[in-house]
Simulated assay, not measured.
Amino acid sequence: MLMSNTDRPARLHYMPNGFRVLTPGDHVTCAVTSARIAIEDLRYWDVASQRAFASAALATEAMAPQ
Rank of each mutant, 00 (worst) to 15 (best):
T29K: 13
P24V: 03
A31H: 11
V32P: 10
A62E: 07
P16T: 01
V47T: 14
V32C: 12
N5Y: 01
F19P: 04
I37R: 05
N17D: 15
V28S: 08
S55M: 03
M1K: 12
E61H: 12
S34P: 03
R51I: 03
I39F: 02
V47D: 00
C30I: 00
R8I: 09
A64H: 07
L22F: 00
A57Q: 11
N17E: 13
H27W: 08
L12K: 13
A38E: 11
I39W: 02
G25R: 02
T6L: 11
A31V: 07
A64N: 07
F19E: 14
N5A: 05
T33W: 03
A10H: 08
D7M: 06
Y14E: 09
Y44M: 05
A10C: 02
A48P: 01
M3E: 14
L22M: 09
P24N: 08
P65F: 07
A31S: 10
P24Y: 01
E61I: 10
R8P: 01
R8H: 14
T60Y: 02
R20T: 13
H27F: 13
Q50A: 04
A35L: 10
A38G: 01
R36F: 01
P9C: 05
P24D: 02
A48V: 08
A62H: 08
A38C: 05
M63A: 09
T23S: 14
A35F: 03
H27K: 07
P65M: 13
N17M: 13
L42S: 03
Q50H: 07
N5G: 10
E40M: 08
R11I: 11
L42K: 12
S4C: 06
M63G: 11
V47W: 02
V28K: 02
M1T: 04
Q66D: 14
P9D: 10
T33G: 08
W45C: 06
D7P: 01
A59F: 00
L2S: 14
I37W: 12
V28A: 10
S49A: 07
D46F: 02
A48T: 11
F53Q: 03
D26S: 15
P24A: 03
A52M: 00
R36N: 14
C30A: 08
W45Y: 09
T6R: 07
H13N: 11
A48F: 07
A62R: 10
M3S: 13
V28H: 05
I37Q: 05
D46S: 15
E40C: 12
V28L: 06
Q66L: 13
R11H: 12
V21A: 06
V32L: 14
T60D: 13
V21N: 11
P24R: 08
A38N: 05
S4H: 07
A31T: 09
Y44I: 06
A64F: 01
T29C: 05
S4I: 02
Q66S: 15
L42W: 08
S4A: 14
V47S: 06
